[in-house]
Design a protein around this nucleic acid. Structure first.
Lengths: 189, 189, 189, 189
DNA sequence: AATGAATGAGCTTTCATTCAT
DNA sequence: CATGAATGAAAGCTCATTCAT
């Protein structure tokens, strides 16, 4: 029994290493990153990559979901260690980081490949509750204004934080900062 | 002499065909579109492509500048044929179309390749005056609110019109429409 | 002790399943059929295949001998249940079936690999006596002509039944039928 | 004009080298011979192989037709330099050599790939007239028996000369020899 | 003894780039 | 100047074979 588990844990470690490696390569070179490079970074042979992710879309999906999970998972952790408003701010930073990584996946996600159809739903299903819990807590503490819609907020930040035209003076993230500040300073509005 | 001129005009025609072909392919398949495909669509051999654009970045830059020129050039044309506010709206639509095409170039532009460093400046140097002239005319006519900063507006629309996360309810472009409507309806603010 | 026997019978079952599976795959896809497919069809892991047949040639030989054995073994069975001439005809059909399967092995057998050197001898050592017994019985019963050489007959049918050039009018097998008919109808020659 | 021809002649030389190389490799290793090996032997890059023969079947067909052409083309040459019966015999030897090479193509030809459908017809359309001309001449000279059907003879030799079971005592080709001898010695039958 | 995960060589195929014509 | 044939590096993917469990 334990012997079987040992084999599985090896395989599991490989899968995790592959997803982590793919995440890095996707962020740097887009989703067309060479399979060999991904396998090398993960410390496995290409065959192992193909065993676990026969289609490239399988790997893209795994990375995306892994990212969403990690981002959503950060919410309760932050809520447990920071005051409500700080937790919210910290999580929004975390979320914008995630969006930065996701940029590489963009083209693939909109490629029309049916394999990716479920991803937007997955995105919303996991991140909306995560943000909502933080918003509610901050509202309850009177630290931010009330009535903020989690879904709209999620999209608004997504749009603001992925500038197409690089403003040398630093547009995008500053606007996110502004948005966050706005939330806090209008707590009594 | 005339033979040389004929040759030059041939070459010029080839260059134009190549830029136009590249524009189409970049928009459809990104900047990694096969050189052969670009050459074929342009009706020339690949050798000709490489003669005029030894580096792929040369072609990317040419396409980008061509697009910026075309977009900027539309401003006076529209100003000449439409009432100020309509000209402004029409040009903003033209600008969002340009942004859509430019999406494909995004990754290349942010690749860190020094060849692309000058492009943001080129973008601003050409489009800001174009927008400014339209804004000034519309303001002068009392058709829109005053005090709109051309540069900020350019960036804001860029960010709004290229949604990373597809909001099923439409988000991005609707916000652009909203922005434009806002300009007009607050003319007297 | 009984545990060991049980183990052995398991192993034996695996070997048989592998040979049977290999026979099928060889017939369909040639001797280069994927090891994984053979193992899967046999219901075992690839490791088991390699344990019992370290070299591919080991498996090819096993299949060939298995086929020869089965074909040779059919002779006494048929002789016991059919009149001599019918048994002969039935066995010849069985033999041509075998030849059909063997086609897939052909290239391997003639590859010059020393592992296969003994196979022609095995072929003859088993099938000649099988055919001879049937011929003798039929001759003795006066149902076929006498003086037919078993070895020559074996080869003649082999050559006739594996047409290289497809005659649309059906050459090969019809000629085998003709040969058999000839045997019977010239019983008194 | 001549410049263009020069380029074409290079390309033509490459095509010929590729067909010749493929013929050799197909004969030795079957039609699955590595593309790289074929290209190397031909002294060209793999890309050149794929330029001229995008599909493997294209190459197989080219080799087959090249072989048929060469074999058919040998008939008039032999007829011009040898007495009718000798020319016939010499050509039949040439034909059996061709059949030997063709063995490697066999599996591909019967694979059901529609690309190969036209080949049997090509085979017959070229080789039947070649053989017929030689038979007629030999008959006219009274050197062989008359009434031999070229198509049947073509198939008969094909079947006889490609033994599936290697007769150590040399079956196949001897039977062809016998057949030929039979033709000659029954000239007056 | 059986399993199947892992490996990596090897194959097909594509395509950027060069260069002879 | 234009052409497009040729090149060969690079990448995806498969599968024979090994070996830890």
């Amino acid at each position: 029994m334990s012997a079987q588990r040992a084999l599985r844990s090896d395989a599991k470690r490989n899968v995790e290493a592959l997803v982590e490696s793919a995440r890095t390569h996707f962020a740097e070179s887009g989703v067309d990153a060479p399979a060999r490079a991904i396998a090398d970074t993960a410390g496995v042979g290409v065959g192992t990559l193909y065993r676990h992710f026969p289609q490239r879309s399988d790997l893209v999906i795994a990375v995306f979901q892994h990212e969403v999970d990690a981002c959503a998972g950060a919410a309760p952790e932050l809520a447990a260690t920071l005051p409500p408003a700080d937790a919210l701010v910290a999580w929004l930073r975390r979320y914008t980081d995630f969006l930065g990584t996701k940029k590489g996946l963009g083209k693939a996600l909109h490629s029309g490949d049916p394999a990716f159809e479920a991803l937007p739903e997955y995105f919303l299903a996991n991140l909306r509750p995560a943000l909502e819990s933080l918003l509610v807590a901050a509202e309850a503490a009177g630290e931010i204004r009330s009535g903020v819609n989690a879904k709209d907020f999620l999209y608004a930040i997504a749009n603001l934080s992925v500038p197409v035209v690089d403003d040398a003076s630093g547009g995008g993230n500053d606007m996110v900062g502004l948005l966050i500040d706005g939330l806090r300073h209008t707590a009594r509005s």
